[in-house]
Amino acid sequence: MLESLAQLFESWGVSKALDQLQYLFDPGTLPFAIWETLYAPLLATVFAYVIGLPLGILLVTGEAGGIRPLPKALMQVLNTIINLLRSIPFLILMVMVFPLSRLILGTAIGTTATIVPLTVAAAPYVARLVEGSLRETDRGVIEAAQAMGCSPWQIVTKVMLPECKPSLINGATNAAITILSYGAMSGAIGGGGLGSMALMRGHTRNQVLVLYAAVILLVLLVQIIQSIGTALCIKTDKRIDHTNTKKRRKQS
């Protein structure tokens, strides 16, 4: 009985707890891991928007009945490529993109190298998020803009994007969180940061404390990003009558 309990503790890695704590509290460990966890995914998010935002706009404006219809064949190709990229599981995509990473950055290993597969994986996702947001634009408002003599470009920049700002911010928050979790996953094959910490030490070397510390930090990071996103979204949304919500809160 006692023996099996000791075995269980052993299997949890509790016997090496001191080692693990020492590792975790080393001033070089966590700050660096957090930095690595954030910088590649956040850069990848930016790049994914550079590619995905124009694509998302095209998906809405270019369809039949859109404000500037494009050839049907072109739209089909675009849709197919996006669906194709989105259906490949991230880790597999990452391996497939290794040659591209080597071409662009000279290496396929390390945190920086994951920016390439993260961008490739996230761009089509971002395109769909942007598409979904822009589709929410009120048809009537677009019609009013057209009646005022707006060009298609002006409708995109002055009507669709500003009118959908809250929804776009919401989408960007989702994108950043998803890419962060992909980035953590990339720790399995060469990426750095908290994900690699959890996988390489927590799992492979059976360091349970390190595993949990990494996971808790990942959860916290996601919480922070989500809170910032939600706050920005509410702040920019003028469709909600804030004076009234305040009044109502006071009343209740």
């Binding site: 009537g140 408002v141 009013a144 500003p162 700002k165 920019t236 469709r239």
Partner: peptide
């Protein structure tokens, strides 16, 4: 000029 049943104002302005 044109005006509509549902006003069609820009809600974020």
């Amino acid at each position: 000029g044109m005006i509509f049943q549902h006003f069609n104002l820009l809600m974020q302005r």
